[in-house]
């Protein structure tokens, strides 16, 4: 068996240390070692986006990254988006605009959308669709997902927002 490798990373603000087999994928480290099962494994081939997390502030597909590659990094998962008991605006947008049905793709969708809004505070619908090209939803289609991201973008810009019931 290949030698285990010591790794250290900050996950959702908490420092984690461990020894992993080099072949352990980041998504398995998060889910199985740290118990953070909000990050999902969908296709396992870097196409569906269910496993998107942020590594040093950038969206990545955690099924296509070994945990050792994230050694020394700061990782944020869906569990780390809530701040002071408040949902992240993208999470709130998915709730308000009914941006999900079964919810399997949602953590990855939200992490990918949050990455977009970090770089572009006022995206067009077309830019949102381009940014979510690597995230597949098999339930509802993407219309309400785009509305959810637009809701979050408006809220993050400090503009008034209205929910689905309005």
């Amino acid at each position: 068996m290949a030698d285990k490798v010591r790794i250290r990373m900050t996950v959702n603000g908490l420092e984690q240390r461990g020894e992993v087999e080099p072949r352990m994928l980041l998504v398995h480290y998060l889910r199985e070692t740290l118990g953070l099962t909000g990050t999902h494994i969908g296709c396992d081939t870097s196409q569906c986006g269910a496993c998107v997390v942020h590594v040093d502030g950038q969206a990545v597909k955690s099924c296509t990254l070994f945990a050792v590659q994230a050694d020394g990094s700061s990782v944020t998962t869906i569990e780390g988006l809530v701040k002071d008991g408040q949902y992240h605006p993208v999470q709130e947008g998915f709730w308000e605009k009914h941006g999900l049905q079964c919810g399997f793709c949602t953590p990855g969708m939200i992490m990918a959308a949050a990455d977009l809004l970090n770089k572009n505070s006022n995206p067009t619908d077309a830019e949102i669709r381009h940014a979510l090209e690597g995230n597949l939803c098999r339930c509802t289609g993407y219309q309400n997902i785009v509305l959810a991201v637009q809701y979050a973008a408006a809220k993050m810009r400090g503009e008034p927002v209205t929910g689905a019931a309005d």
Binding site: Q58, A112, D115, G134, N135
Partner: peptide, 9 residues
């Protein structure tokens, strides 16, 4: 190429 998460790596 790919999608944003793929392009980041």
């Amino acid at each position: 190429i790919g999608d944003p998460a793929v392009r980041n790596r």
